[in-house]
Each structure stands twice: as structure tokens, then as C-alpha cells.
């Protein structure tokens, strides 16, 4: 089977790899000139945190996320499995209880409460900063850009070409049996209910402090996460704004850095290495979709969960195209015709 995958973000690369590993003849087309340059995966946090996401996400996200966590751990050597630490400043501690209740109802037993001593033992640079925390021990994180390159290397080894500067509507798809469209917001002409949700992020370099695992700081107004990136770098994210522009506003940077500074004043001395923004593709319920229309399968709406969902959706994609399977939980358009059949 000949498959063209459009889009070399995390969804496209995972789909290409799953299809190639199952014997399909695959090529990847990417409109950008280089890997990641035009994809929102490039600006992702890279947290593999299926249980923490239950704070706001549906159980489906956690279920697919657990599968993806195993997938990444099996394929990418650099996936770190040190868990996620969730903290809140003293007067925001009700947020911690709310987070525990929300995530605990859907997935009991996934976290442990830590006191100040426990926090300091895990993250020495947070000693004395917080009194209470939740540790989600089974979660992990990866460096998104390294992971994209690592997927590209695997595809290269599997003989899958990635062609840059080529869009999906080109003639290159003419001979394909199927087109897997993973172009995110660029597919909006076909997927009318898709919208963009802006996320702004920064990368800092600090020689003073370091973390071993993602730190989520709960706050009623300015929630924040800090993800270690290696080489003294810390990713600071991310805003969630109903807008598909990718301007970075002064206010967002001010809020993110203000919240980071409150975690540890040493972050005030850090270098700003990068400021970036992305518009995440999302459907109205913020859940992902596979929509099969003719020979094109759209894989879209991964929202804030690109790395967390892509491998599971890629597995489904391969099963839809190669085995004729249908997955009602993500195939809203096709499940009706499937039931009729």
C-alpha cells in the first residue's frame, strides 16, 4: 500500500513510522523547509503526563496517553521517567487539593503526597520553596525537538523519505492509495470545526538551578510548567488563549516569567534563550479525531497533547488503513456509517 503522509509534525512522523513498521510504502511531505520549523510540535512541552492531564482533559486523553508513554519509552532512548512534580504556593494550596481530587477520581493511586522534605529530596533546588506537592511517579518527559529528529532518523532507516517544501495538494499524492493528512490548522479548509488555541513559551538557561523532572505550578490565574531540557535549559510554558495568531504578547511573557520567578528567584537571573508561540489545532471538545474521507484520513485536533496522543493515534491510523478497523471514540464522522455497515 502506498501512503503519503502530509505534515512532518509529531502526528505525521508517528503515523509514518507506524505505517512503515507495518509494511506500508510511505513518504512524508512537509511544507516547511526544515524539520519542525512550521509545526507546533516544535514548541511543545514534551511532557508525557497522562494522569496530570486529567485535571482538564477527558479520560480518553489519559487512556491514549498511557499507550503513547509506552510507545515513546520503547523507541526514544532519551525519554526520562522521573515523574511529574505538582506544586502550589502556600496560599494556593486549595489548588493542589482540587488537582488531586480531579485527577484522583479518574485514575486513583497515581500520585503520592510529599512534604517539604520529600520535595527537597527529589528536587534539591526547590528546598524550602513549597510545603506540599503531588508526585505522579509514572509519568515522563522528552525533548520534543530531539524526539522529532529521532523519529526522522528512524524513518530514514526504514527507507521513508521526508520531502521538505512540498504541500499535500501537489501531484506527489496522485499515485497514493491513501493520504494521511496531519497538517494541523492548515487542514482547516477541510475541517471546518477546527480552531487554533495559542500557546506561548520560553526557554531559559540557568546555571544556578536545575530540575530533574517537569514541575507544574498550580495557580488560579497563572498556572505554569517548567520542563528540564538538558544543557542548563528550562522550558517555561505555556499560555492557553483562544486565538490562532502566533504573536507573543508582552503580557504573556510577563506572566510566565513572573510565575517562574516566584518558583525560584534564581530564574530571574537566567538567560532568555528563546521566546516562541504555536497555535494548537483543536476541535470544540478539545479531543482528537480521525476522519476518513475518500482516500484521505485526517488526523487532527491533538490540541495541547501532541506528543501525548500522536503514537496512539498513529497506531489507530495504521489499523484503519491497513486492517479496515474503525475506532468510534475518535472517528465521529465514520462511526455512523460503520454502524450502518
Amino acid at each position: 500500500m502506498q501512503v503519503v503522509v502530509a505534515g512532518a509534525g509529531v502526528a505525521g512522523l508517528c503515523c509514518a513510522l507506524e505505517l512503515a513498521e507495518r509494511g506500508a510504502s510511505v513518504q512524508v511531505l512537509e511544507r516547511g523547509a526544515t524539520l519542525g520549523a512550521q509545526s507546533c510540535s516544535w514548541y511543545a512541552g514534551g511532557m508525557l503526563a497522562p494522569w496530570c492531564e486529567l485535571e482538564t482533559a477527558e479520560p480518553l486523553v489519559a487512556r491514549l496517553g498511557q499507550e503513547s508513554l509506552r510507545w515513546w519509552s520503547a523507541r526514544i532512548a532519551s525519554v526520562a521517567r522521573h515523574g511529574t512534580l505538582v506544586v502550589a504556593h502556600g496560599r494556593d494550596e486549595p489548588e493542589l487539593a482540587r488537582f488531586a481530587r480531579r485527577t484522583g477520581q479518574a485514575a486513583p493511586g497515581r500520585y503520592a503526597w510529599l512534604d517539604a522534605e520529600g520535595i527537597a529530596a527529589l528536587e534539591p533546588d526547590l528546598a524550602g520553596r513549597f510545603r506540599k506537592a503531588l508526585l505522579f511517579n509514572d509519568e515522563g518527559h522528552l525533548e520534543p525537538r530531539a524526539a522529532l529528529h529521532s523519529l526522522a532518523d528512524r524513518l530514514h532507516q526504514a527507507g521513508v523519505p521526508i520531502r521538505f517544501g512540498v504541500t499535500a495538494d501537489s501531484q506527489d499524492t496522485a499515485d497514493a492509495d491513501h493520504v494521511v493528512d496531519c497538517t494541523g490548522l492548515a487542514a482547516r479548509a477541510a475541517l471546518a470545526d477546527l480552531r487554533g488555541v495559542k500557546g506561548e513559551m520560553l526557554v531559559l538557561r540557568s546555571r544556578d538551578i536545575a530540575f530533574r523532572r517537569p514541575i507544574r505550578v498550580l495557580h488560579p490565574r497563572w498556572p505554569l510548567y517548567l520542563v528540564p531540557r538538558g544543557e542548563d535549559r528550562i522550558m517555561v510554558g505555556a499560555t492557553t488563549i483562544e486565538s490562532d495568531d502566533v504573536r507573543v504578547t508582552a503580557r504573556s511573557v510577563l506572566e510566565l516569567l513572573g510565575a517562574a520567578h516566584a518558583v525560584h528567584p534564581a530564574l530571574g537571573e537566567a538567560d532568555i534563550v528563546e521566546i516562541g508561540a504555536q497555535a494548537r489545532p483543536a476541535f470544540p471538545d478539545n479531543l482528537p479525531r480521525l476522519r476518513l474521507r475518500g482516500r484521505t484520513l485526517y488526523v487532527n485536533g491533538l490540541y495541547r497533547h501532541g506528543f501525548l496522543l500522536a503514537p496512539a493515534l498513529a497506531r489507530m491510523t495504521a489499523q484503519v488503513l491497513l486492517e479496515g478497523k474503525r475506532f468510534a471514540e475518535v472517528m465521529d464522522e465514520n462511526s455512523r456509517e460503520w454502524r450502518l455497515a
Binding site: T56, P284, N286
Partner: peptide
Amino acid sequence: YPSPAILQ
């Protein structure tokens, strides 16, 4: 809200 669909 968790999502616009839930808001609606």
C-alpha cells in the same frame, strides 16, 4: 471551561 463544547 475544559473545552468550548462543555461551555456550550
